[in-house]
Design a protein around this nucleic acid. Structure first.
Length: 532
DNA sequence: CCTAATAAACAAT
DNA sequence: ATTGTTTATTAGG
């Protein structure tokens, strides 16, 4: 209901769900109305009977008779698809490629006959638990913070991470050795958990302008810090690590950063026939360059290439999706558009993150991002984006002014679709802007500064203690991804900080800004894709 | 051994 | 109470 029916129409595709022919084949994204759902529904039941499954015996509903069926094509009562796959389908079905948990539920109920009747009845059906479980477990699903009122976060699929990679088994370490111990520890920690005494955590609410880190890492970071202090052994586990070296790191990076550098990732991965290593380096460079004043040069380069790549990006996405599961053909045009839009959406929430921890959004986007908030009278969409970008108070203020409604950004964001970006770009020129741009530097710097401060106090401190050089040393040695990560971020922050402190460089924007009224032009030229 | 489903314990909101 | 995370158990390949 809440759905802005705009493009959504309805995700109700109906995997015809038949005994063995996999629905995956192709039919999937077709706008299939609720045709045969009713008819098929009955068939699904089978052994499911007491799906609830009493606490003692887990096996209850499971395969049982179903599995035995026909060469084992269908493993679950609903078909051969795993929960993960179903979820993927659900997410992909969404025009924006993102769904909230509730929406996923909804999709399940609507699209998969088996769940049709099980939807609303009891909220805590086992399958919902499983859905959640899968969402959390698999790295192919990423959670992005939802700016809307108190909505649950968006779930979307990780373009890269999904392929086959499961959850980032961080430190799977000790299992073999002292499983008991591990268990004990786990239980102990869980039951006892007075830990996480983080003094600020609760108090920071006012400062929470930025949701520090919506996702997984935050929670973990604490633990990790502990780990660092404790110096977890876990040595033996990774023999391959050495050889793998970068790759695992990257992977981890993906997991943690993906939200921030999704775009860059997409570029690199998509565009490149380049060997992985190079790609990685590119990434790093990319991230670093961001900060360097010279970035403009590179940006040119990138923008040039990005033009091509952008196209490809769609492919990359698709391919990854395809790999992840079937999804298949489906409309090209819509896909393209939706992809773009999805990208834009990526940039929105992601940029927020990127603002916090400057990592590696594509330069042009950065520019836009940076410029965006400044633009006063851009219009609703802008404000919505701005809202996303700023997230929180500033956004609210803007909202109040620009959009008295105060309606959830969600709705605004939805319908906009592809049109958002183009409209956004060229606008830059405006009388006020000249003035505002002058002042632009100020707000931006402020933002950056804040980001530095708020971004990651812990990291900063660690950075101060263990500056750049160390990281390189440790990196290969210990291969601690987390460490690496942190250090990396530290680097960023450190650099920024220093730069800010030095005041030597007047930001990247300086060079570009000098001609206030024109930059728009330059930008426009930058975005090859704009004119379409 | 690995994957996946399922149940359940909890942290946050 | 919902949403997320995480651990454990179990079954199947």
């Amino acid at each position: 209901m809440a759905e802005p029916a705009g493009a959504a129409a309805s995700p109700d595709i109906d995997p015809d769900f038949e005994p063995q022919s996999r629905p995956r084949s192709c039919t999937w994204p077709l706008p299939r109305p609720e045709a045969e759902t009713g008819g098929a529904a009955g068939a699904a039941e089978e052994g499911a009977g007491g799906a609830a499954a009493g606490p003692g015996r887990t096996e209850g509903a499971r395969a049982g008779g179903a599995a035995a069926r026909k060469g084992g094509s269908r493993r679950n009562a609903w078909g051969s698809q795993s929960y993960a796959e179903l979820i993927s389908q659900a997410i992909e079905s969404a025009p924006e490629k993102r769904l909230t948990l509730a929406q996923i539920y909804e999709w399940m109920v609507r699209s998969v006959p088996y769940f049709k009747d099980k939807g609303d009845s009891n909220s805590s059906a086992g399958w919902k638990n499983s859905i959640r479980h899968n969402l959390s477990l698999h790295s192919k699903f990423v959670k992005v913070h939802n700016e809307a009122t108190g909505k649950s976060s968006w779930w979307m699929l990780n373009p890269e991470g999904g392929k086959s990679g499961k959850a980032p088994r961080r430190r799977a370490a000790s299992m073999d050795n002292s499983s008991k111990l591990a268990k004990v520890r786990g239980k102990a920690s869980r039951k006892k958990p007075p830990l996480q005494s983080a003094p600020e955590s609760s108090a920071d609410s006012p400062g929470s302008q930025f949701p520090k880190w919506p996702g997984s890492p935050s929670s973990r970071s604490n633990e990790d810090s502990d780990v660092w202090n404790t110096f977890r052994p876990r040595t033996s586990s990774n023999a391959s690590t050495i050889s793998a070296r970068l790759s695992p790191i990257l992977t981890e990076q993906d997991d943690l950063h993906d939200e921030e550098l999704l775009p860059s990732l997409m570029y690199s991965s998509a565009s490149s026939n380049v060997p992985p290593t190079v790609t990685e380096e590119l990434e790093l460079i990319d991230g670093l360059n961001l900060m360097s004043p010279s970035s403009s040069v590179l940006s040119t380069q990138q923008s040039a290439s990005s033009g091509q790549i952008q196209r490809d990006s769609s492919f990359s996405l698709q391919s990854s999706n395809a790999a992840g599961q079937t999804f298949g053909n489906s409309l090209f045009n819509p896909v393209d558009i939706s992809l773009q839009s999805s990208v834009s959406h990526f940039s929105a929430p992601q940029t927020l993150e990127s603002l916090l921890t400057p990592s590696s959004p594509p330069p042009r986007d950065v520019m836009m991002t940076q410029v965006d908030p400044v633009l006063p009278q851009t219009g609703n969409r802008m404000s919505s984006r701005t809202l996303l970008l700023l997230g929180g108070q500033a956004a609210q203020s803007k909202m109040s002014s620009g959009n008295p409604r105060g309606k959830p950004a969600e709705q605004q964001a939805e319908p906009v679709g592809a049109s958002v970006l183009p409209s956004t770009l060229p606008i830059v020129t405006s009388p006020q802007n000249t003035a505002s741009i002058t002042s632009l530097k100020a707000p931006v710097s402020a933002t950056t500064g804040q980001s530095v401060q708020l971004g990651s106090p812990v990291l900063l401190s660690s950075a101060s203690s263990a500056p750049l050089g160390v990281n390189q040393d440790r990196l290969p040695t210990d291969l601690d991804i987390d460490m690496y990560m942190e250090n990396l971020e530290c680097d960023m922050d450190y650099i920024i900080n220093s730069e800010l402190m030095d005041g030597g460089l007047d930001f990247n924007f300086e060079p570009i800004l000098p001609t206030p009224s024109y930059p728009s032009t330059s930008q426009a030229s930058n975005h090859t894709w704009v004119p379409s």
